[in-house]
Design a protein around this nucleic acid. Structure first.
Lengths: 209, 209
DNA sequence: AAAAAACTGTTGCAATTGCAACAAAAATAA
DNA sequence: TTATTTTTGTTGCAATTGCAACAGTTTTTT
């Protein structure tokens, strides 16, 4: 996203100046929030990493979202209709900023800078989110595991402008992100290596074509 | 989305008042735009229906997005990294409003109402988009065809507050939307009927549990 | 009204994928 | 440092899914 708005610095500067937002810390494994109640909550990751997790009726766990520094998440982004219970769990110790959607449309008591800035920059935050969701959909709609992997590698390669790059996920999490079985993914990755398309050392991948 | 902002009316009122936006008409089958060049384009469907289509290197066609009245789309929402060529094609005769992302941050010559309103309401437009993308991801990450269908039916059912509802897509398109093979989907749907989970007459589905 | 195109319904078969299971390696906690 | 937990790597097997193909409908175009 080519924007000159630096969320990080902005938030650091203003995070204590507004009475309509809250900041909380969570230790690894702690539940940050649930998407069950209807509170119109919006959250921003200031530090750390959190996962958005779905448990289906069989108890199967799926990581349907993963948020890191400056990512925005919350129940307002989810359709009210789904009957899944979604949890956000801290994967690492994390610092999270909370506010409600309504907050954005009402000035706070002190008419504070933070508040104004947030309102002004919200569409950029949202746009960033849309882009990453579209990216994920792009991958999820690929026809098979091989294409998912190659498309994802392609993105990482172009993003880093290198043929060799590190995966931002563990293989376990990557499988989750691409919504495929881990062992099937490992098998396909091995095939890709054997057939000379890619090389793999630890969490580093090299594209060979 | 619980908003009192009516995009439709607003756009109808102001669509001729701003020199920074364009409105064009397309006949069925015509290409509305491509996501190849970097123009930071944003588009809104005023009337009609358009598909966002990807052709992969094998010539396989996938409908990766489908936009109807008041939906927002455009290349700004897509990561620059992907090497796919994406096309937007009119599925029906359509009226589309075009502008560039930058437009939103500069006042137009006349400081027109349309322009102001658009800027103010952009985050709501974006939020709507995020919700529908999350919905799609929710479905795409389901483990198998059966769960995809049931989850989708559930959403339609809750949305209409009925056990019986019409599908907004043809079966061909539904398979595309869920990113599954059409014949496999039909087979699974037949099983769901045979096992008494749902009933199907034409494009109407009834949930029986 | 006739012709063409798109959609539905169905099937056999092959390929892909998921599942279960386990050992080895690595990372984290005690 | 040792113990515990998590991740990686691998495999056989079964289940699911995709593919190809085709006939019958329905819809759209001419």
């Amino acid at each position: 996203m080519d924007t000159n708005f630096d969320k990080k610095i902005f938030i650091e500067n203003f995070k204590h100046s507004c009475n309509r937002v809250q900041i909380k810390n969570f230790v690894k494994g702690e539940t940050v929030t649930t998407y069950i109640e209807k509170r119109n909550q919006i959250c921003i990751v200031l530090n750390g990493e959190v996962d958005l997790i779905r448990y289906d009726f069989n108890g199967n766990k799926t990581i349907i979202g993963h948020f890191v520094n400056d990512d925005i998440f919350g129940e307002v982004f989810y359709p009210a209709n789904t009957n899944n219970e979604l949890f956000v769990v801290a994967r690492k110790n994390s610092e999270i900023l909370f506010f409600t959607y309504d907050t954005l449309f009402t000035k706070c008591r002190r008419n504070c800078e933070f508040h104004k800035e947030l309102t002004n920059n919200l569409s950029e935050l949202f746009l960033g989110q849309i882009i990453s969701l579209n990216l994920r959909i792009e991958l999820l709609t690929k026809r098979n595991i091989r294409e998912k992997l190659l498309a994802y590698f392609e993105i990482l390669s172009k993003g880093s402008m290198r043929k060799t790059f590190s995966l931002p996920y563990s293989y376990t999490d990557l499988a989750d992100f691409l919504s495929i079985d881990r062992s099937a993914m490992m098998r396909e990755l091995k095939l890709l290596c054997d057939e000379g398309f890619v090389k793999k050392h630890g969490n580093k991948i090299t594209i060979l074509y």
